[in-house]
């Protein structure tokens, strides 16, 4: 008899639990189907030197590298930029950039003014490579291992918290795997 009256309470608590979880989820973060898949091939002109090509092979030159999609028109990119500079200064992981749907002078200007954390930036004017990489909200950062496999995708700015909690442990794990 008593148990019967507890049912609404239990249902209520379950719903509170579900709503609580739902509040924490960010619906704008859609899991990428590219995780653990080979990075999509690209070959694009270098942002600074249109004669030079940047292609997927550069990502396989290191045990692990970051591939950061950015644009000078992107507000959140500016927000994450100081952190990228900090990472670049530490020299821990090479950062490659994909300058997405930008104008060359704007992008170069942006880097000159704020600093250039990128080992190299590929210039994706049309956003065609962005489509292949499933980019839908710049900035996005991919963690790529030495086999050229995408291991993780950060949607939105790369923050200190995301770095410490998720990306750095993953990088250490990848390094350990590759010995």
């Amino acid at each position: 008899m008593k148990a019967r009256y507890l049912i609404p309470l239990v249902v209520f608590l379950l719903m509170i639990g579900l709503f609580g979880v739902g509040l924490k989820l960010d619906p704008s973060k859609v899991p990428s189907p590219l995780i653990d898949k080979p990075a999509p091939q690209f070959s694009l002109p270098d942002l600074h030197d249109r004669e030079k090509l940047v292609d997927t092979a550069v990502l396989r030159e290191h045990k692990v590298s970051l591939f950061n999609v950015w644009a000078s028109w992107c507000v959140a990119c500016r927000q994450e930029h100081p952190f990228l500079m900090e990472l670049a200064r530490s020299g821990d992981v090479p950062i490659y950039g994909l300058n997405y749907k930008d104008k060359r002078p704007d992008a170069i200007n942006w880097l000159n003014r704020l600093g250039d954390p990128y080992t190299a930036s590929a210039f994706d004017e049309e956003g065609r490579v962005g489509i292949d990489w499933g980019v839908y909200g710049v900035p996005e950062t991919f963690v790529v291992d030495s086999k050229g496999v995408i291991r993780y995708k950060q949607i939105g700015p790369l923050t200190e918290q995301a770095w410490q909690e998720t990306i750095l442990p993953l990088i250490n794990q990848i390094r350990a795997e590759e010995g």
């Binding site: 189907p33 292949d132 499933g134 839908y136």
Partner: peptide, 8 residues
Amino acid sequence: MVARYGDF
């Protein structure tokens, strides 16, 4: 489309 952006 699914290969790039998932079932979503």
